[in-house]
């Protein structure tokens, strides 16, 4: 057990892989915050919309500052993410970005839920904090020096957290709905209702066309569930990475086209690529 723990978490990886992880996490977060222009303006929404957000919940996410200060902090988040992306004071930039993301990510959902887990900032918030704790997170060197290996645990931890998205999405389906979830009838109904709710002309959608093919609904249900539950194998097997990573991309494209569900963290799948295979064990 101890040897396996050692091999999994503390095997060396190239510092380039850590640098790429920093770029991917900061880049994803920056894309999201640039796409949520003036997110702090949610604070100025009618008081009725905030009535369900109690004092403890405000304390949990460190809410309560005036709008002007929140807007300044949101601008600062952009700056820290750019610094993290470029590798300027990378650990400090990652730490500040992680804390600010923890504060701002719930703005997207807090009037309904304190759990903004499907809004794209969860893994960047956790991942940037993890990287900030690691001593080997530095600027990206195009040609790493001979001693530029580092313990893999920061990268491993982020990879594990990313795998949990898939695994627990599958697990949640099984514990909530059981083996009826992937059945053709259930998938068909999801195809219909999501296109009816989100599309202006559902009758012409690809989701509607696929809903009429029972074999395709069965394939989507069981195939999707299998991918979700098996995805953590990418942590242990190169063959699994070669098979499951492209399948995950197809899965997300299919979700977008058929179910109108977009996964903002799709680029983070590149965290599983070894960017310095000459020297890395990961």
């Amino acid at each position: 057990m101890s040897a396996r723990w050692e091999a999994f978490w503390h095997a060396p990886t190239s510092v380039r892989n850590l640098a790429v992880a920093r770029v991917l996490l900061a880049g994803t977060a920056l894309w999201m915050v640039l796409s949520r222009f003036d997110l702090p303006s949610v604070l100025a929404f009618p008081a009725e919309m905030w009535a369900g957000v109690g004092a403890a919940r405000r304390a949990r996410f460190l809410l309560g500052a005036p709008l002007e200060l929140e807007q300044t902090l949101y601008a600062a988040l952009h700056a820290t993410l750019v610094a993290a992306l470029l590798g300027l004071y990378p650990r400090l930039a990652c730490f500040a970005s992680g804390l600010l993301l923890y504060h701002f990510a719930p703005f997207e959902t807090i009037i309904r839920s304190p759990n903004p887990y499907l809004r794209g900032l969860t893994i960047p918030a956790l991942g940037l904090l993890v990287l900030s704790f690691a001593p080997h997170v530095r600027r990206w060197r195009v040609f790493p020096a001979a001693d530029d290996d580092a313990p893999a645990w920061p990268l491993r931890l982020v990879q594990v957290l990313l795998c949990q998205i898939y695994f627990f999405a599958g697990y949640a389906k099984l514990v909530t709905s059981g083996l009826e979830w992937p059945a053709a009838e259930n998938v068909r109904r999801y195809l219909l209702l999501l296109n009816q709710g989100l599309s202006n002309a559902p009758a012409g959608s690809l989701g509607y066309a696929v809903a009429d093919l029972p074999w395709a609904c069965t394939l989507l249900g069981w195939g999707g569930l299998a991918l979700e539950l098996l995805f953590p194998l990418v942590l242990f097997s190169r063959v699994a990475r070669l098979v499951l990573l492209p399948l995950a991309v197809v899965f997300h494209v299919g979700n977008g086209v058929l179910f109108r569900i977009f996964f903002q963290n799709v680029f983070l799948l590149l965290l599983f690529v070894d960017w310095d295979r000459r020297r890395s064990a990961s």
Binding site: A105, S177, E180, W181, N186, R189, I261
Partner: peptide
């Protein structure tokens, strides 16, 4: 499946689709 965001449950369209 009890969230403690940023540690979270990752449940998505996990219920049976309503009619």
């Amino acid at each position: 499946q009890v969230e403690a965001w940023p540690f979270t449950n990752w449940a998505l369209v996990h219920s049976m689709a309503p009619s």
